[in-house]
Design a protein around this nucleic acid. Structure first.
Lengths: 121, 121
DNA sequence: CGGTTAATTAACCACATGGTTAATAATAGT
DNA sequence: ACTATTATTAACCATGTGGTTAATTAACCG
């Protein structure tokens, strides 16, 4: 019984499931509609399993409509995961700043080098 | 060999590894320093394995210093994962707006109800 | 050299994950 | 009632994950 955040990240750690979420971002879809892009690569039960992972993570909710199971995206866990990540924003921005700084010094050096080599006729 | 994003999310799907990242956000730390908070819960080889997962995901880099292996956080994959998530920002903001709207109508209804029940003497 | 500290590797185990095929359920439509 | 469609469940398999203990490597220190 892992915590919510772990379940969310685990659910996102699969390209098939991320593609399904992307599809659901455009609106509800039934299981077979979600399965359609993967029909060549995997069977329907495999799709059902992926959806179950997304459901247990709270990223989607399945409803009933005749013999269809329309799925709907639930963005809350995504927001929570995103909020968690923002903790580290400071760090990647710092590291980007350091990179910028470094590139500036490299460019400065290059310029000096250029001058040194400037024996144009 | 899963894609980068999958490896990142998989690495983040474990509270121990997230705690290690949090520690590394405050600066470099050796393996045993990183292990310290977990000494009661798990052995050193377990820690080594977690670090290997983080390393393969590109979230940390290990260097050498005598018999120590100082680890440093590398925020790039975190930024990429965060950027990916921002796709869904629209959705959770929309759903928040809908919730707000709903709460407004509920409050309005409550008020009306209150009036109806107002037979104070 | 010999001992200590830091960390990894090896070998193993239980359990989860991602897939399969075959069988089953549930609803719609005629 | 029968058949087709949609989806799930069951049973199975290979591989990955998270942990263990014991052995090994590598560097320092006296």
């Amino acid at each position: 019984m892992p915590d919510t955040l772990s379940q969310t990240f685990a659910a996102l750690a699969d390209p098939t499931r991320r593609a399904m979420l992307a599809r659901l971002a455009d609106g509800e879809a039934s299981v077979s509609e979600l399965a359609e892009p993967f029909r060549a690569e995997m069977s329907l039960p495999a799709v059902t399993k992926h959806l179950k992972v997304l459901e247990r993570a709270g990223l989607i909710t399945k409803t009933k409509q005749a013999q269809w199971r329309p799925c709907k995206i639930n963005p809350l866990p995504l927001k929570d995961a995103s909020d968690w990540m923002q903790q580290y924003r400071r760090i990647w921005e710092e590291s980007f700043d350091r990179l910028e700084e470094y590139l500036k010094t490299v460019k400065a050096k290059k310029k000096a080098q250029g001058k040194k080599n400037d024996r144009s006729k």
